[in-house]
Design a protein around this nucleic acid. Sequence first.
DNA 1: ATATTTGAAGAATTTTATTCTGTTTTAAAA
DNA 2: TTTTAAAACAGAATAAAATTCTTCAAATAT
Lengths: 150, 150
Amino acid sequence: MEQIDAIDLQLLNILHDNSKYTVKELAKMVNLSASPVFERIKRLENTGYIKKYIALLDAEKLNRGFIVFCNIKLKQHDRNIGNQFVSDIMKIEEVVECYNISGDYDFLMKVSAKDMKHYQDFVFNKLGSVESIGSTQSTFVMSEIKNMYG
Amino acid sequence: MEQIDAIDLQLLNILHDNSKYTVKELAKMVNLSASPVFERIKRLENTGYIKKYIALLDAEKLNRGFIVFCNIKLKQHDRNIGNQFVSDIMKIEEVVECYNISGDYDFLMKVSAKDMKHYQDFVFNKLGSVESIGSTQSTFVMSEIKNMYG
DNA sequence: ATATTTGAAGAATTTTATTCTGTTTTAAAA
DNA sequence: TTTTAAAACAGAATAAAATTCTTCAAATAT
């Protein structure tokens, strides 16, 4: 198992918040020169600690600022129904995240829509045509308080 | 209002998934030369369509692979209690996301822990000392099905 | 105490980002 | 429809960054 030290952890925390620093800037932040910092980052990438680099977009500007957590109960609990549900959900662009969960419901989805009208359309037309779904329950986000990714 | 066109949208979608492409690579993907692509990206950054660039880390490797959605009811619903809750929650590192929501509960938090033991400790010791909390309900993630960010 | 490995620094090189110039396209005004 | 101005593009030139390489120092094992 590849071990990481305190400086690696520092680098991960910095890059998790902003991946656009130059290695020279990062080097100054962790009190090293550029080359070891470069090597450390490559190692963190190659060992999988860093999965990928992405751009975070403004959901509001892209007409996706209306967030809903949608709980799903399947009709039945066999593997076929489950696989069908997963396969269907993967294709729906409004579904931004989806988890298989414990409790009263089977899945929890984070849905990203333009507004209530769009969400309504999503529930009727998109979810409405997913056969495996038994019932749904929607929880609307009134405001985002904290997001370590956004 | 700044308008974006189909090519901008293409670039946003590409960068949302992988921000490490070179402008030359991006240029080839959208059938343009490097300079207009460079200018478009700068414009998307300056107008706020692109908020920031981050590295996505492997939660499992960092001992944060145990995900729980934790619903919170406040003791009372006045502004002071609410503000106190928000301020407390902001300091707790296990709380990765937090939303003010509609429905039976007031807040929905996404919590990231090492394992059940760590989560239990989080509930007792961290949430346990947040005075504003009335009650909680935990929903455990058994598996992640879809994540447009991860 | 000595050899070996690991990690770091700094210089050298390669690649990429960024700027600049001239041209084409687009859209607006005449 | 013609003219004009603005915006967008391509390609070259430049600046900055990433990446590699060599040498040295520190830590670890022999």
